[in-house]
Write a protein that binds this DNA or RNA. Sequence first.
DNA 1: TTTTGGCACTCAACCCAATGGAGTGCTAAA
DNA 2: TTTAGCACTCCATTGGGTTGAGTGCCAAAA
Lengths: 346, 346
Amino acid sequence: MADTLTDRSQKILEAIIEEYIATAQPVGSKALTRNLGIKLSPASVRNVMAELEELGYLASPHTSAGRIPTEKGYRFYVDTLIRVNDLNRRQKDQIEQQYGKHGLQMADMLREASRTLSAFSNYTGLVMVPRLKATIFRHIEFVKLSPCLVLAVFVTQSGLVQNKLIEIEEDLTPRDLEKITNYLNQTMAGLSIQEVRARVVTEMAQEKDLYDHLLRRALALSSAALVDEVTGDIIIEGTSHFLEQPEFADLKCMKRIIQTFEQKSILVDLLDRGLETEGVQVIIGSETEYSELSDCSLITAAYSGKSGTLGTLGVIGPNRMPYSTIIPIVDYTANLISRLLDTDKD
Amino acid sequence: MADTLTDRSQKILEAIIEEYIATAQPVGSKALTRNLGIKLSPASVRNVMAELEELGYLASPHTSAGRIPTEKGYRFYVDTLIRVNDLNRRQKDQIEQQYGKHGLQMADMLREASRTLSAFSNYTGLVMVPRLKATIFRHIEFVKLSPCLVLAVFVTQSGLVQNKLIEIEEDLTPRDLEKITNYLNQTMAGLSIQEVRARVVTEMAQEKDLYDHLLRRALALSSAALVDEVTGDIIIEGTSHFLEQPEFADLKCMKRIIQTFEQKSILVDLLDRGLETEGVQVIIGSETEYSELSDCSLITAAYSGKSGTLGTLGVIGPNRMPYSTIIPIVDYTANLISRLLDTDKD
DNA sequence: TTTTGGCACTCAACCCAATGGAGTGCTAAA
DNA sequence: TTTAGCACTCCATTGGGTTGAGTGCCAAAA
């Protein structure tokens, strides 16, 4: 089907999509021949447009308006037509600068990444915070808050700090805690959290009637400290850019989208999808499979530390997004973050 | 000036404000006599309204519309007319329930507070994260990430965990770090951060040519770990409620407000103002002294742990807010948080 | 066979005038 | 002092007319 498009049809489709992305107005045949590099008459263009509409790449809001791209149109554009320019040196430097001033801490870095994505794309930036299980154990520390309450502070290889309150039944002396801490730090260092968790489970099973009380407690504590987060967290920046989009002028629809953002879980799911994919991924409209976001598109890419993929980041906006300029921004940011996480601290 | 208002004028002003809060429509004399408990004729009401407008409590968008309250009107309403009903048992229970399911961790609790404020008020919830200097030192821990990079993890009395990356010049052995940790935890426990900081400074000055290397390093490390955050952090939830307000239907103005939220610094300043005030504080429109928020009002209250005031929380919305129902929600939430912080962990 | 000019047609957007109605201020009567 | 009555104002809504961008189709040109 898509293959049957002639060269000329593709050129016209591309021109229409780019014009529509730039203006947010339905494009007519005349505008195309006037401004863009189409050296055909409006009438010929009209024929092609009618054909493209027939095939589902374009749609017309009403008879006497121009055409706008359908999702299928955008998809074809992104898959085949698009010409992605790499960022030039200056742009790369500008993006990179944003991370210099900040402390080197991971959480700050991810927040900055989201901000930068938003600022450079003029849409909304998304960064998924690494899931615990994707990270590598570096250090754990227990701070006793009360006789039956212990705070576990937990540092991953890449410098992410997580903490968790644990209720315990039996009182542990600071001495006990120290021993437990030492034991865990020595045994578990360098393992991925998944491995640590697995190991704790098997050891606990093996040594059910463990006479070594301390070991048992150590395992119990670490098991409690490392329970998986039910749901990932996500950093959203630049929601206000949505208010600039003419397609969301309707407050009803606007509100639905912003609420979806606040709720986060849907975005978490969408970013999760990019975890296994190499390079930049584009999700267009109903491909999200959420009706709330049927008019939104995402451009995402995975980032990684030395332990492999940690999470994904990206940009969300209306379907009518300048994909060709945003894709390299997302791509570069993901690589930059990966680089920073890799070199910084170890 | 305000004192010259007769009883009757006040009743009418109150009725107008409450009607306007409920409907968002300018209130006319007829509507007042029909629906509300005013047993005067429209003509009499009109006289009073004209008088109230003269005095600056009301304004009319144009000649043939009803009246709407001015900021002065709202201020008088909040200061004198308002009847704040306490929450009933059921409402209190409902609010309290929100905190049960969650872990007991402070950060989660504050986030939940913001969510709850938003959900129960139908406006936007704000919670200021305690400033470091307002908290009490409980425990510090150093994790060595690389030869010249140390992660300081730092727990306050109330269970807030902060962490900070520190670059060091000289390599410290794990043994050194442990000693330093012990020293600091023993000397500083129970002091407020301000005190700790002061103490570190004086000690460092005193013992300039300290032969005890370790102590000097300890002080240097803790000094680096406890530098004040330049700017406080704030948790915002329920921004989408702003999209429901008819007064912000204009996208331009809407965008300005949401951008102000994203930037956070202005909100931090506004919440800061409530730190020294007892009870609930209301800031109306231009009282914020920020033109971006000249159509917004805040209802805030301070919350505290056992070490005294920790921060503030509240609700932000349009000037036309149902103050009488939101004030008790903010009040109760602040008290609840204070109670939870006080009892939970020590 | 493909392209193009011409032409009739469609339809949203815009403008404009007329209408209706809610609300006001004022005055005179109760 | 309160109220009924009345003239007046002005926004919001409605509906008709016009405009203009764009379309589809057909016949002529290339």
